[in-house]
Amino acid sequence: MNVFRLTGDLSHLAAIIILLLKIWKSRSCAGISGKSQILFAIVFTTRYLDLLTSFISLYNTCMKVIYIGCAYATVYLIYAKFRATYDGNHDSFRVEFLVVPVGGLSVLINHDFSPLEILWTFSIYLESVAILPQLFMISKTGEAETITTHYLFCLGLYRALYLFNWIWRFYFEGFFDMIAIVAGVVQTVLYCDFFYLYVTKGWFSRPYRL
């Protein structure tokens, strides 16, 4: 554990809670892509199956349980509790174009050809692109609420901080995981355009427009 890893995790946690609270307080999920949230629920489920097979640390277990719980709570709010406010017409990204190639890639390129490892790899690849339906939705409507941009900023910052964590771990522990690193770079790059807009526009205008 280093400072980049910890702040990355906290940034991720902040993003998840910001989104959950935003939907809960406003009693609306307008402008939020339910498809991205389903993808994140799949990401956490397939990655954290090791909760059932191995114990790493109390911190590790707690965070995994919180992430999974919040992901499903978010999906529940969007598709059940506040379904009437869900903007399905604008959430039109074809997720099969992500899930199918990612599934194929995780079978082809993985550390070990075993069910748990392939599912872990699938979750890493899927996470890197899971935000695309949300970004697509924002580009389609041309605007996002300020709080949604804070959510996206924290979510993007988390993987960027993990990149520094991986650099740290490579230098000080000689550890690297090429699958996580390449997917993490892809994931961070997808947010670059958004980061730029967030910094130059997001802090000063409301509502946020692309």
Binding site: R5, D9, H12, D50, S54, I56, S57, N60, M63, K64, Y67, H111, D112, W120, Y162, N165, G174, F175, F176, D177, M178, I179, A180
Partner: peptide
């Protein structure tokens, strides 16, 4: 091996 993921990360 060193390049194997250790599953400690989230």
């Amino acid at each position: 091996s060193d390049s194997q993921n250790d599953k400690d990360e989230l």
